[in-house]
Write a protein that binds this DNA or RNA. Structure first.
Lengths: 171, 171
DNA sequence: CCTACCTCTGACATGTTGTCCAACTTACTG
DNA sequence: CAGTAAGTTGGACAACATGTCAGAGGTAGG
């Protein structure tokens, strides 16, 4: 998690070295590099699920829940550049019931509630809003990575953009 | 353009074969695979610039111009999956004055006009709006590529999302 | 003790990128 | 017509990362 999470381009050799084992030992546990990356992503998303569980308990308005969701995921996006990396995109294509899906599904549910309650505009496809949210999150992360924005500024801009996209009133 | 534009993962060998030459000949013209991709992207964006030139002449409102910009770029995104591919993202990092920048710069100018004229909300950073627009465009393209949306539906959803993000009235 | 289980060393196959060179074709030039 | 310059080709080779395989060694638990 430390090596791949921070340096998505790290070679299997480097991951093994950081773990104090050899390359072959890594392959003994994970059949391919991709499955190793998948495992790391799974662990990260497990953290996300846990954080969402503690944050989402007494769900107030959908808007407030959305902001908490953004807060949790943004923090992880900041800690693990791997999540921004293309190699991750190739993973959740086939394996649909991956951990990753859980986090996304929470957002989808949240959007459903918000639209039903009239907090969000209901004329935009929830599935699209999920994709759009992730895309904007990646874009915001990219701005930070490129040094064009600070983390806090990017988070603020992201919040405003998402709310606007959803047709929610800014609190 | 045909091979790489449609199949971003194509090997240099395949590009060479399609051109009726050998791999070495390709390397005689382009020092690396990346520079070859960059050249393809340059040609595509040259088309984009030409299309924008013919479409942008008598610029009406900024909103109308924005929709034309979206129309032109969306068409190219649809024709050349390469533009959605990660390998392209690695290009325009270093070479800032690439053709690609011209298309982006047009959007930035357009946003400036719209904000100055009060058509768009002026409280969001134009540079961010540019990044966000591209991100949403890629997301919409991804939906089409994944078979979750038709091209026309994705284009419509993209338009609405962008307008909403910009704080523009939907025409 | 001894048997699984894990790990290590070392070697090997594969595929792609990028480089080098000698030989060949083609077209232009004096 | 001869010669030259440029582009192309075939073949070979290095580098590098991913995977695979077999044999030797170590360690904990029965």
């Amino acid at each position: 998690m430390r090596v791949l999470g921070a340096h998505p381009d790290a070679k299997v050799e480097q991951v093994a070295a950081a773990a104090g084992v050899t390359r072959q030992t890594v392959y003994a546990h994970y059949p391919s590099r991709q499955s190793l990356v998948a495992a790391v992503v799974d662990r990260i998303t497990a953290e996300a699920v846990a954080a969402l569980d503690t944050a989402d308990v007494d769900s107030g308005t959908a808007t407030a829940a959305l902001l908490r969701w953004l807060d949790v995921t943004w923090r992880l996006l900041d800690r693990f550049p791997l999540l921004l990396h293309p190699s991750v995109a190739a993973i959740d294509q086939g394996d649909s019931d991956r951990q990753h899906a859980v986090v996304v599904e929470r957002l989808a549910r949240l959007i459903g509630h918000g639209q039903a309650a009239g907090e969000f505009d209901g004329t935009l496809d929830p599935a699209w809003l999920v994709s759009a949210t992730i895309a904007l999150g990646h874009a915001a992360g990219g701005e930070v990575a490129a040094g064009r924005m600070t983390t806090v500024r990017a988070a603020a801009v992201l919040r405003r953009s998402i709310l606007r996209l959803y047709g929610a009133r800014e609190p």
